[in-house]
């Protein structure tokens, strides 16, 4: 099956049915390995056992930005190439991205209370991630508010691309401004500053959560294609009833 074949929703559904069980299995296995490695990781000399929150906070934070990146590429697909699955991909990703962003915010807050002495601080990193969460909610509301999928797709694509400006702001906020949040310690010039005892479980959890996203996204895309099929058949039914 070539890449161009995937533009056909029926062929995409067939591919999804084949790969979803394998993806789900790989996700469960990697999550179990990651959770075991996280449980076995030593305490940090400063943070103690609270460092274990990092193993779930960081993957969720990465995915909150990654999912918006995927939605931005899909939005280009909608506006430039009018790919039939581009809007399906963006719409299906939004609730999953919102959930990851919510988890990044809450686990960060629960990590911050014992380490910083506060659940929340209006600094650049935390505020820009909160804005990302609100943008996800705004996009979901937009898709629900506009009944015609093609009109909703164009409006959502423009909003997604405008919102993409926030992604580099989130990433570099800790470098550009004086924030309570620590600077990057994994993806940075000069390599990670984390010891392997923390870095390896973190990377396994990051891959596991990425696989979880891909699995959920493909399943949600399948649902969205079926929803659009239901809509078009209901319209055919209404037309037949009107003609009769």
């Amino acid at each position: 099956m070539s890449l161009i074949d995937l533009a056909n929703p029926t062929k995409f559904l067939a591919l999804t049915a084949r790969v979803l069980p394998w993806l789900a299995g790989a996700t469960v296995i990697l999550l179990l390995i990651g959770l075991y490695q996280s449980a076995m990781a030593p305490d940090d000399y400063q943070q103690g056992a609270t460092v274990k929150i990092m193993f779930i906070h960081v993957p969720n934070a990465w995915l909150s930005m990654f999912v918006w990146g995927i939605m931005s590429i899909a939005s280009l697909g909608t506006l430039v190439w009018r790919h039939p699955l581009a809007d399906v991909a963006a719409k299906a990703a939004a609730p999953i991205g919102a959930a990851f962003t919510f988890l990044a915010l809450v686990t960060g807050s629960l990590w911050g209370r014992p380490m910083w002495g506060t659940y929340w601080e209006w600094d650049a990193r935390l505020t820009s991630v909160l804005i990302l969460f609100l943008m996800y909610l705004g996009l979901i509301a937009l898709w629900r508010a506009v009944e015609d999928p093609s009109r909703a797709a164009r409006a959502a694509a423009v909003l997604t691309l405008v919102g993409a400006i926030n992604i580099p702001i989130i990433k570099f906020s800790v470098d550009w401004w004086n924030t309570l949040h620590q600077p990057a310690s994994v993806i940075r010039m000069g390599g990670p500053t984390l010891d392997n005892a923390f870095l390896i479980p973190l990377l396994i959890m990051a891959i596991a959560f990425s696989l979880l996203f891909i699995t959920l996204h493909l399943a949600a895309m399948r649902n969205e294609i079926l929803r659009r099929r239901v809509r078009s058949l209901q319209m055919m039914q209404a037309n037949q009833q009107r003609a009769a």
């Binding site: 274990k52 929150i53 959930a99 919510f102 686990t107 629960l110 209370r113 014992p114």
Partner: peptide, 23 residues
């Protein structure tokens, strides 16, 4: 074994599990 902030760690993992399960 999780120390004085065990409730924060357990709540974090519990919440992630609940939200992923809901999804």
């Amino acid at each position: 074994a999780l120390g004085p902030y065990a409730s924060f760690i357990v709540t974090s993992y519990g919440l992630v599990t609940a939200v992923v399960a809901l999804l």
